[in-house]
Design a protein around this nucleic acid. Structure first.
Length: 509
RNA sequence: GGCGCAUUCGUCUAGCGGCCUAGGACGCAUCCCUCUCAAGGAUGAGACCACGGGUUCGAAUCCCGUAUGCGCUACCA
């Protein structure tokens, strides 16, 4: 068994309902399924489970596809791709489900149920009142012909229910969760085919997984309780079951109870995209929620994940969502993995979104690219998510005259207005007279300013020399690297801002 | 209520009977570096391995209870 798992190419699937942007927990399961298919050299399918017409959300399919693609999860078969086992949308496979349901009734493993929703409700209430477990009383298993005719005559369309074996126990084996055994009598006669002709999940996923030749069903742990029911259905159909992995649920962050909910957290893939998380970082973070490779590896490229991923190392324990760690991983990718060009290019939409540049410029930066790239680069090592970039560098894009800051900020620690003014004075003089090569050379600039600090102004430390220009250029007390700002802003703008600062200082009296 | 699964630092985890006086990471604290903020480096605090019983020469690792958490209990998935 164990050997089979590792050697055979697996066919896995991600089978979401089209109810909006994929939930982060849901997509994590998709990641597991994808990695396992790729790891074994098999196929990853996308299947849309749209059998609940009431919950359909417009645009979901595109949303699902976009999220998958954004994260780098491409599917081999499914919507937009086709494949030998299509269609891959359940609402287009109704005849199949209906014929299977019909056959089960003929085989005696399922039966028509003529109960009305009202009666079902009443049965439940009565059971609860009697302190019994709620559930269907299996009445239609023994319904008489006369009663059946009466129901039909009233215009009612029957559902098809699974005929659960009343005796014995059923054992379900999972690849990560320990074996589970239940008394058959505690399982419900689940509806297989609804009165609207659509199958329920219980029927649809089994039929599809069977005909699509899925080898490994990787799904959320919420399905665990109904797994024994699925075992019985497979048995009733005479089909062999694929291997199962029930991935752990993702819980709310520490301090909050329950599974990850949108009440207090971002939960959809698109939300994280909009917040400025990188797909590779989100993927890396998510895969580590419930899975680990060893005791120390934290970062993985997609290639490494495909190589190293093993479903048997998936954890059975629910994991809390830890935003701090996601931020750390994201910052790591921004700072240490992305090239400056790549990073700056990804900043464009966020700069446009916040109004720092125009949408037109974001779409085609043209000759503004060099400046934008340099500006973004200034904060590459300090930003955790891309939405922070515009707030960190917007002052570079505004006219210097728009900078608003208290003139007292220009005075460094242990410094005086006069000393600060003198520093600005000297800096201006210095920047005016140096050649372009020096101006655009970080190290040379720093050396020049250090020299003035030490040998001309005799300042106690270089910090006193660099502080006033920092505030003058950025209008802030926390800013990017001074030399970087001087170079990025260019000589004219830099000197203009320094001059302006000097005047602000003078106004202090 | 019933059924089920799970239980190692605040969090994510390593560990699959002796290598564990339990390792790594995030976060936190302190220090170093340093032009501010970060990044980076170092150090540290932090888990009697939920609790109680067993099994064994020996248990975080196996078994049984209890507690807690989570999930399911629809003509939703």
């Amino acid at each position: 068994m164990t050997e089979e798992i590792t050697t055979r190419p697996a066919r896995t699937r991600y089978a979401p309902s089209p109810t909006g942007s994929p939930h982060i927990g849901n997509i994590r399961t998709a990641i597991f399924a994808y990695l396992w298919a790729r790891h074994t050299g098999g196929q990853f399918l996308l299947r849309i489970e749209d059998t609940d017409r009431k919950r359909l959300v417009e645009g979901s399919l595109e949303n699902i596809k976009d999220s998958l693609l954004w994260l780098g999860l491409d599917w081999d078969e499914g919507p937009g791709k086709g494949g030998p086992f299509g269609p891959y949308v359940q609402s287009e496979r109704l005849e199949l489900f209906q014929s299977v349901a019909k056959k089960m009734v003929e085989d005696g493993t399922a039966y028509y149920c003529y109960c009305t929703p009202e009666r079902l409700d009443a049965v439940n209430k009565a059971k609860q009142a009697a302190k019994q477990a709620p559930g269907y009383d299996r009445r239609c298993r023994t319904i008489t012909e006369a009663e059946k005719d009466a129901a039909l005559a009233s215009g009612l369309t029957p559902t098809v229910r699974f005929k659960v074996p009343l005796e014995g126990v059923t054992t379900f084996r999972d690849l990560v969760v320990k074996p589970l055994t239940v008394e058959n009598s505690t399982i419900q006669d689940a509806v297989l085919l609804k009165s609207d002709g659509y199958p329920t999940y219980h029927l649809a996923h089994i039929v599809d997984d069977h005909y699509m030749e899925i080898t490994h069903v990787i799904r959320a742990q919420e399905w665990l309780p109904s797994a024994p029911l699925h075992v019985m259905i497979y048995n009733a159909l005479g089909w062999t079951m694929p291997a199962f992995v029930h991935a752990p649920v993702i819980l709310n962050p520490p301090g909050q109870k329950g599974k990850l909910s949108k009440r207090d957290n971002a939960v959809s893939v698109s939300q994280y995209q909009e917040l400025g998380y990188l797909p590779e970082a989100l993927l890396n973070f998510l895969v580590l929620l419930g899975w680990s490779y060893d005791d120390h590896t934290e970062f993985f490229t997609m290639q490494e994940l495909i190589e190293k991923f093993d479903i048997r190392r998936i954890q059975p324990t629910p994991a809390k969502f830890n935003l701090d760690k996601l931020d750390w991983i994201n910052a790591h990718y921004i700072n240490h993995v992305l090239s400056v060009d790549d990073y700056a290019r990804r900043c464009l939409p966020f700069l446009a979104e916040s109004g720092v540049i125009s949408p037109e410029t974001a779409a085609d930066p043209g000759d503004k690219w060099e400046f934008i790239r340099a500006a973004c680069a200034l904060v590459k090592d300090k930003v955790k998510i891309l939405t922070e970039v515009p707030v960190e560098i917007d002052f570079l894009f505004k006219p210097g005259t728009d900078l608003q800051y208290p003139a007292t900020d220009l005075i460094g620690k242990n410094d005086t207005p006069a000393a600060a003014a003198q520093v600005l004075e000297e800096t201006i003089t210095y920047l005016r007279q140096i050649p372009n090569e020096t101006y655009n050379d970080r190290e040379a600039l720093l050396a020049g300013l250090s020299d003035i600090s030490e040998n001309k102004l005799h300042l106690k430390n270089r910090g006193l020399m660099l502080w006033p220009p920092r505030v003058a250029l950025s209008g802030r007390t926390k800013s990017p690297d001074l030399m970087g700002m001087i170079i990025t802003l260019g000589r004219d703008e830099t000197i203009a801002r320094l001059e302006q600062a000097r005047q602000n200082l003078a106004s202090l009296g």
